[in-house]
Design a binder for these strands. Sequence first.
DNA 1: TCAATATACATCGGACTTCGATGTATCGAA
DNA 2: TTCGATACATCGAAGTCCGATGTATATTGA
Lengths: 115, 115
Amino acid sequence: MYIEKLMKKLRKELRSGIYSYLVLSFLNRNGTMHGYAIRKEFERISDGKVVPSEGALYDILKSLQKLGLIEGEWVEAGKRLRKCYSITPLGKLVFEEMRAEIRLLEEIIRREVGE
Amino acid sequence: MYIEKLMKKLRKELRSGIYSYLVLSFLNRNGTMHGYAIRKEFERISDGKVVPSEGALYDILKSLQKLGLIEGEWVEAGKRLRKCYSITPLGKLVFEEMRAEIRLLEEIIRREVGE
DNA sequence: TCAATATACATCGGACTTCGATGTATCGAA
DNA sequence: TTCGATACATCGAAGTCCGATGTATATTGA
């Protein structure tokens, strides 16, 4: 159905940016996590409703790393190598700034749309 | 400064989608508006803090029109032609759906980050 | 035992976004 | 008459998320 596809597209747009924010928040709270665990955390906190695709998540992780907001490190887990991420001091700073930005947007939406 | 540029980029991401949502909201509330007026409305309701660039706004308008959420019509204003937009029935429907999606995201952020 | 499922990482092309720069043109006011 | 506000639009750049695809190990239950 047309409206289904439409909403999928618009949902995607609305979520853009919020994914990065939540990743920073998870790492800020939990210390260190690997990609798969981060994805599980999205599932957990949103009841499976707000979960980036695997491809998207690794893009986000790569991007945040490139920006210096998180750090990745290869860690042995049994015979398997896992890439574990943690937030940097800059990441913590930026997280707080993003928080302020989100509050601003919430405020504007509340004023505009009501409730 | 690095963090300035960083925040600019991240702000942009966070705002993605919300612009479309607010345009629909303006048209839903005001009936008919032209592009420039929509931009002024962004300035008004956000104290100049959340305003898409001109390029971005016309892209958004074009996109919403293509999706069938708004309609554009050329109207004479003195000797000048203005393109006036209004929301379609589909647009109203989608606006409500987006509202639900935004509430969901707000709820998740509130649960995750607190307050 | 062995087959399915879950865990875990990553890349690629496609479709799409916002932005800044640029261009055109009209209007009102100093 | 010149400047700034009004008003529209397009373009390339950089970056987004997604779905598909690929690789490989661990676990579980039939």
